[in-house]
Design a protein around this nucleic acid. Structure first.
Length: 410
RNA sequence: GUGGAUGUAGCUCAAUGGUAGAGCCCCGGUUUGUGGUACCGGUGGUUGUGGGUUCGAGUCCCAUCAUCCACCCCA
């Protein structure tokens, strides 16, 4: 290799130890989601660029500077999906499911954003996402939140913080937004440069600013939860009521702002302080307008996405898996027969490695390094009798057996 | 996109501007029928890359790439 070949910046390999953790998280998700009658969908990784421009919003960072988009050989404008919701809505409409009743979906797969990598942030990362279509009431919000909560408990993360907010709706948000902008403009002199940008692009983001000086100015800034219309206020109250009924702990955080344009009413994040600046491990909310925005009938919907890599960082590495048996073949004449013994054991569901022959010492070293529980020693003596020696690697105990007598304790 | 830190063997790290090293790992040996311990030996490097300064650069300077962390933004 003249030049060292590396994976693309911010795009990492999933090596066995890492994948082991991912699989644990995914299987927990599958178990829990099944209990809520949620079905898996597998959606394209490539989508028309237009889909995200129309759904996420052209002005958002994701669309304006973080998408991997390109023109293919047929002059089509396509991109690697930066998130999962838009594609799910597209699929829902394309399949003609708008009159098929509530659809409860989940998916699991890679997303792509061309950001500067840091802790908990990659250019290719995986999300486990959930989308419920045709779910209008606060009860569904509660159930989605309960499911997210159950999922995290299932993987052993019960101490995470659920933060809840309401973003209002087209009836009440514009008026609130004007009120907020007024407030901010009065104090514009004391706000940081990025907050000035946020005032134009997304004023609610100012509430989130990390600058202490800005936060001081925001002490009594108007909050959406205090300016909800009657419908939104009732919805929000019912969501809180349902969470209380299920004894799911949460705190209202009026400063939660969803990044993507399509959210309304319920918005939530599940956060940890163990992950540095990227503490959000799962986030979502209601997006009642999106289906219509993409050309379908008015369809209420709610969903969330969890970052697989971020969740994995909170879990302990699993102990390495090891084979049950290592086959040690002593002498070339026994090689074929030893291969047959290994094959026979595997056909019984036992995991076996073959140490490949050579000196006994070499083969036992291999067996030792693989952390096997037993070695199966096959030499000319054994083969002549049609038997094998089974050695317990932790006790050193050995016994001569015929191959089909081998029974491993569970 | 902006800022900071860091790049030397597979890994963890040494080396005042003067011959690139150690430990661990790996491979082999100490009875080609017995592992974890011990001893012996061995493989392995264009010092991230490209320039510059110098008699001489791992070391100083510039650029570039990558990793990590933070901003921005977000899962």
């Amino acid at each position: 290799m003249a030049e060292k070949l590396r994976s693309i910046r911010g795009i990492h390999d999933g090596l066995p130890q890492q994948v082991e953790i991912w699989r644990k998280i995914e299987s927990a998700a599958r178990r829990v989601f099944a209990r809520y009658a949620v079905a898996e969908v597998r959606l394209p990784i490539l989508e028309p660029t237009e889909l995200f421009v129309r759904s996420i919003g052209e002005a958002t960072d994701i669309v304006s500077k973080e998408m991997y988009s390109f023109v293919d050989q047929g002059d089509a404008h396509i991109c690697l999906r930066p998130e999962g919701t838009a594609g799910a809505v597209r699929a829902y409409l394309q399949a003609g499911l708008t009159r098929a009743g509530t659809q409860r979906w989940y998916y699991c797969g890679p997303m792509f954003r061309r950001e500067r990598p840091q802790k908990g942030r990659l250019r290719q990362f995986q999300q486990i996402g959930v989308e419920w279509f045709g779910a209008a009431g606060p009860v569904e919000d509660v159930e989605v939140l309960a499911m997210a909560h159950d999922f995290l408990v299932e993987i052993g993360l019960s101490e995470l913080r659920l933060e809840l907010n309401s973003l209002g709706c087209p009836a009440c948000r514009p008026a609130y937004r004007d009120r907020l902008v007024d407030y901010l403009q009065q104090r514009a002199d004391h706000l940081c440069a990025t907050c000035h940008e946020r005032m134009d692009k997304n004023p609610m983001r100012v509430l989130d600013c990390k600058e202490e000086q800005c936060q001081q100015q925001l002490q009594d800034a108007p909050e959406m939860v205090a300016h909800l219309c009657q419908g939104c206020a009732g919805h929000f109250a019912a969501v809180r009521c349902g969470l209380d009924a299920l004894a799911i702990r949460y705190q209202v955080n009026p400063r939660i702002v969803r990044g993507l344009d399509y959210y309304n009413r319920t918005a939530f994040e599940i956060v940890t302080d163990q992950l540095g600046a990227q503490g959000t491990v799962l986030a979502g909310g209601r997006y009642d307008g999106l289906v219509q925005e993409l050309g379908g009938p008015a369809t209420p919907a709610i969903g969330f996405a969890a970052g697989l890599e971020r969740l994995a960082m909170l879990l302990d590495a699993p102990s390495p898996t090891s084979p049950d048996i290592a086959v040690v073949a002593l002498g070339d004449v026994v090689m074929d027969w030893s291969l047959q013994q290994a094959a026979a054991l595997r056909s019984r569901g036992i995991s076996v490695i073959h140490c490949g022959g050579g000196s006994a010492k070499r083969q036992f070293k291999i067996a030792d390094r693989e952390l096997v529980r037993y070695t199966l020693i096959i030499g000319e003596d054994e083969m002549a009798q049609g038997k094998v020696t089974l050695r317990n690697m932790s006790t050193g105990e050995q016994q001569l057996l015929s191959p089909d007598e081998i029974v491993l304790p569970a």
